[in-house]
């Protein structure tokens, strides 16, 4: 199925401003960095988590630990996918128990990925609190899940897709909406 770009939603400065704002909000809500950890959901959530960590360091002068979560083993749709997802490593080099863990992902949609990520994190220990940060919330939730920090709320149609392009993976920073080619 081919898709064509319908609109650009965020450009590079737009993404950066959104992440800066999220960093500030995280600090406000958590009252500083002690006990704070960021966990990015593969693949683009990991880059976003690293960027937020850099901003936290710039603001507070403290390094916040960043982990990487692969939710493949927790997905509820393995039996429905045409292609089996490639499993990648989960690397969370700190104990999660007692921490405030901020899950970071690029796009929040049905909520199923976050459900899987919550299960995965809780298998690793007992965090004091889990929060959710997303760059884009495009709506259409299928589970009672709500983000704590949002870069941009973006009303979309189901047939559309939202693509977050990041320079670490795609060589450019922008967010676009695509729709199926007519």
């Amino acid at each position: 199925m081919s898709a064509r770009e319908k609109a650009q939603v965020l450009d590079e400065p737009g993404i950066d401003r959104a992440l800066t704002r999220i960093a500030h909000e995280i600090l406000e809500r958590s009252e500083g960095t002690p006990g704070l950890a960021l966990v990015g959901i593969r693949t683009r959530g990991v880059s976003l988590a690293r960027r937020i960590a850099e901003k936290l360091e710039a603001i507070e002068g403290v390094k916040v630990p960043v982990g990487t979560l692969d939710i493949t083993l927790y997905r509820d749709d393995l039996g429905d996918l045409a292609e089996q997802p490639v499993l990648r490593e989960t690397e969370i080099p700190f104990p999660v128990t007692g921490r405030t863990v901020v899950l970071v992902d690029d796009v929040l949609y049905t909520g199923r990925t976050i459900r899987a990520a919550l299960d995965a994190i809780m298998d690793l220990g007992r965090p004091r609190q889990i929060q959710l940060a997303v760059l884009i919330d495009r709506g259409h939730r299928e589970l009672p899940i709500r983000p704590d920090y949002v870069g941009k709320n973006l009303p979309t149609a189901r047939r559309e897709t939202v693509q977050v392009l990041l320079r670490e993976h795609d060589g450019t920073d922008r967010v676009v909406i695509q729709e199926p080619a007519p």
Partner: peptide
């Protein structure tokens, strides 16, 4: 390669306190 890469990712589970995933 795929089997070995997948196995490498699985190794992390062995290091957990709760060694179980719902897959």
């Amino acid at each position: 390669e795929l089997i070995l890469d997948t196995a490498e990712s699985m190794k992390e589970i062995a290091s957990r306190a709760i060694k179980k995933v719902p897959t």
